[in-house]
Write a protein that binds this DNA or RNA. Structure first.
Lengths: 152, 152
DNA sequence: GCCACTACGTCCAGTTATCGGACTTACTGC
DNA sequence: GCAGTAAGTCCGATAACTGGACGTAGTGGC
């Protein structure tokens, strides 16, 4: 009964990273968001080794992020599509892109600009679903818990 | 002149992933957001091998995401703090957590709940900075570019 | 029919990274 | 002096990644 089990923390971040916490996995997902759903295209546009891409796609499919479906019987051809869960990864991709645009383009224009249907270049703001305010780390606390996050 | 250079795509997502595109890197950052700034704490709470944590912290510091500062001279002790750039990673962490909460807790309560200063449990919505609307992949297009993303 | 080409992988061998556990150094507190 | 903590380092075994060649199933041109 005396469960002294300290740590590793079980947390949704860790769980999510077990699935998409690797460069090629996320880049594959990025490509599908950009409309490139075919194996060879993903390999070319991401630069991933074919073997690695095969492995990543396999787990993404197994975990329900992508769906592999045949698009042609006779030349046997397949495409990978985002499932509902996969589509929900969009904020992850967008926030990674946002961060790179802000901190990794030294002065230069970002390598790709996304345009929102409102007509403006996409800037992403993560907001609180309850109050609508932009979220800052300092305004958030873990639930009744020993771990504090005072300061930064 | 005829630059036939096809691909690998240069994109902010890829660049960002070169720095934080690995499980332990992101989990280290998560810990710092949660207020745990010391080496041993990060190792325990993340479950990362000490060696790997050392390596990740080194690159995070080199890339300007974290800052390593001494907190005590005499027992030589250090802590890792988020830089401005590091703080900007919050949306990434939050959206990963959000995704896990939504897709990886089968029915059960999420392992950690964050409370926003507005008093409500944090739900994150990624919105367009121009029009304020929540962003959906289908409402976004890459700038004047051959790649389409019709369908999903 | 034959050749060239594409798509979607697999196979291989060499290199690199990860892992867990033990060990080191520099202290403090009893 | 002895136990304990913090922050790493070192090590050997295993696993993962990498680039390039190869395989297979088809198409289209001539």
């Amino acid at each position: 009964m005396t469960s002294i089990s300290t740590e590793p923390r079980t947390c949704s971040v860790a769980r999510t990273l077990e699935i998409v916490g690797e460069k090629w996995a996320l880049l594959a997902v990025r490509e599908v968001f950009l409309g490139n759903r075919r194996f060879d295209e993903m390999v070319r546009k991401t630069g991933a080794p074919r073997d690695t891409m095969t492995a990543r796609l396999k787990t993404l499919v197994a975990e329900g992020v992508l769906e592999r479906r045949p698009v042609s019987e006779h030349p046997p051809r397949f495409e990978y599509r985002l499932t509902e869960a996969g589509l929900d990864l969009y904020p992850v991709i967008v926030s990674l892109m946002q961060w790179g645009d802000r901190h990794l383009t030294n002065g230069e224009a970002p390598p790709m600009v996304l345009t929102h249907r409102c007509g403006h270049p996409l800037g992403a703001v993560t907001t609180c679903s309850s109050c609508g305010e932009p979220i800052h780390a300092r305004d958030v606390r873990p639930t009744p818990h020993r771990d504090s996050l005072e300061g930064n």
